[in-house]
Each structure stands twice: as structure tokens, then as C-alpha cells.
Design a protein around this nucleic acid. Structure first.
Ligand SMILES: [Mn+2]
Ligand SMILES: [Mn+2]
Ligand SMILES: [Zn+2]
Ligand SMILES: [Zn+2]
Lengths: 155, 155
DNA sequence: TGTCAATCTGCAACGGGTGCGAACTAACAC
DNA sequence: GTGTTAGTTCGCACCCGTTGCAGATTGACA
């Protein structure tokens, strides 16, 4: 499994089915968000999605964006990610994967890790572990070259 | 390196020196917090430390607790930990280590991981990585036995 | 003992997120 | 089509954790 191809969130049409099957209605607001999340790889915040949604549907409320995202998450169609940049990120990639965050601009990308089953871990005694998440942080290529160009401009 | 013994935060006396060396004053409030963090293994929140501090020094302000903790962190004497439970945790253990959090009660314990250098990682291309943190989550032994006893009480 | 920059405290404000309720509407039946 | 109604939307108040601010206070040094 490469990082550039993943089991994407269900298509808007499939999500429509899933919502109806769970007794939830399919509204224009929800359909819009289904579309915005489909194949989305940028790990957007609720605010970012609200901005995109507002451009296509003026008047949609931030409250509804949160509502729909948490609905999707509780059905397992979306993962909630906390990379420590303040706001929760929403991730339609439900594969088993991890993340790297740029500490300068907050960009988040998917990371696939193999061999974690062979780690020697000390300190989990007494815990029944349900999950392990690995978060890398560093500087993305854009921010790195920004720093270089600013330095040479000063230079 | 076992989980039960770690390079603790500097002693209150050493921190007093460090603060003076950095041009910072040593106040009773700061001394109290030096003492509360020394050897502290529970990864307390600012509110929790404020509660302990208030018991020994009525009138101390939460603002001062935050101030002193961020001062300590910016001198590298303390690590700020985000385990996703809402409030930042403060950790006097500056060893290279990771954490496990109980998703039921929020207890946090130190975890030491060896062999992470041998992980096969795909997706870090273009990033200059500064840090990797592993967060385990699960159920602690106290919460597990609580669940069992509640179940048998119902049963 | 005096000076003064550093600190402390209380309070306002902020960002992210949730509870609530009146107005609205998708879904289904007739 | 029209009616019914449970589910939804939206706006707003509010919550939590944290930070900005400024006036009162005080540690450090002379
Ligand atoms: Mn992802
Ligand atoms: Mn720790
Ligand atoms: Zn960046
Ligand atoms: Zn627990």
C-alpha cells in the first residue's frame, strides 16, 4: 500500500445510502460535505471545510459542518486526527496509517509504517491497548525552502 | 532504562540557580512549583498543579502556574504533552520516551520504546523530521476492573 | 533602605467546540 | 399533490483551556 493511493471514503452516493440505512436524512448540506471529503487528502479542519462549503452554499452554518463530520466519524467513515495544532483534523482515509505534521505551516500528510509489531515496548504493563498512533513532526519542503530564501535575502 | 527510574527534573535548588542564571527571579510561587514537579510522575495538568499549589499557598493564581510551567518548558526542564484529553500535561521526565493514556480515566504513564529506528516508514519524503512521538491508548487496570465489577453487579 | 525591572494576580478575551430550541424540511403515507 | 412528523439546520449562548493585559507587588542588587 503506497501513500499515494488509499481506500477513500465512500462516494457521496454510497454515503447517501449509509445515512438513509441509519435513519438519517440526506440534506443538501450533507451531500455537499460528502463531496468535499471524498478523496480529500489535506486533513482539513472544520473551519477549512466550512470555508469551502460556504463558497458553494452561502448560509450553511459551521454548526452543521461539525454535526455532519461527527456523524460521519461515528459511522466510521471518517477519522478524527489531533496533530497538536489546535483544531481537530478530519480524515477520510480509514486505512491503518499515521501522520507527519509540519511544525511551521501545519500541513499534514499520511505516513505508512511497517514493522511496528516488532518494537520493544516497556511500560504498557496493566494496560489493555486499543490503539497506537505515531506522529512525526518536522519541516515540510515548502517551509524549508522559504527559510533558505529568507536567509539568503538577509545574507 | 526502566520505566520506574528516570532522569528527574532538576532539584528545586538547581532550578533556583538556573532561573537566576537566566535573569529570572526566584519567587515563593516558583519555588513551590519546582517542588511540586520534582520527581512527579503523574503528568499533571495545569489545573491539577494549581489545586495542589493552592492547598499549600492559598491565593496563588492559575495564571502564575501557567507562567512558571511555560518558563520551565522553554528552558527545557519540562516537556509539554498532548494526549488528546483536553488539557496539556506537564512532564518533568526529559528522557526520550513516549506515553500511554487510559481512554477511560485519562491516566498517563511513561513508555520506553526501543527499535523504532528499524521501522519502515513511507510518506516522510520532503520532510526534515525533528521528532517522532508514539501515543498508546487503552484501558488501565483500575478502569478494567471497574468495568468487570460493574458487569458482575448487573449480572 | 531605595530603586526598578521582573513578577503576580484578576479579569477580559480568544479559539475550538458543544447544548439548546425555534424554525425548517426530507421522507413517507395517503 | 398534500399532510404529517421526526430529523435537521441555524444562531446563539455557553463551556473549556489558555493567553493578553495592566495595575499592584516584590525580589535582587546597590
Ligand atoms: Mn491521514
Ligand atoms: Mn512522561
Ligand atoms: Zn510547512
Ligand atoms: Zn483508567
Amino acid at each position: 500500500m503506497g501513500a499515494s493511493s488509499f481506500r477513500t471514503v465512500k462516494s457521496p452516493a454510497e454515503l447517501t445510502e449509509t445515512f438513509r440505512a441509519n435513519g438519517l436524512k440526506v440534506t443538501p448540506q450533507r451531500q455537499l460535505l460528502f463531496g468535499l471529503m471524498h478523496g480529500n487528502t489535506v486533513h482539513p479542519t472544520a473551519e477549512a471545510l466550512f470555508a469551502e462549503a460556504s463558497a458553494r452554499m452561502p448560509g450553511i452554518s459551521l454548526r452543521t459542518v461539525y454535526q455532519t463530520l461527527t456523524d460521519l466519524a461515528s459511522m466510521g467513515e471518517l477519522r478524527l486526527i489531533d496533530v497538536g495544532t489546535g483544531a481537530t483534523r478530519f480524515d477520510p482515509n480509514t486505512d491503518d496509517h499515521h501522520h507527519v505534521v509540519c511544525s511551521s505551516c501545519g500541513e499534514v500528510r499520511d505516513v505508512y509504517v511497517a514493522g511496528s509489531d516488532r518494537l520493544k515496548v516497556d511500560g504498557l504493563e496493566g494496560f489493555r491497548i486499543e490503539e497506537a498512533s505515531i506522529l512525526f513532526s518536522g519541516t515540510c519542503v515548502t517551509c524549508a525552502s522559504d527559510t533558505v530564501s529568507r536567509a539568503s535575502a538577509r545574507g
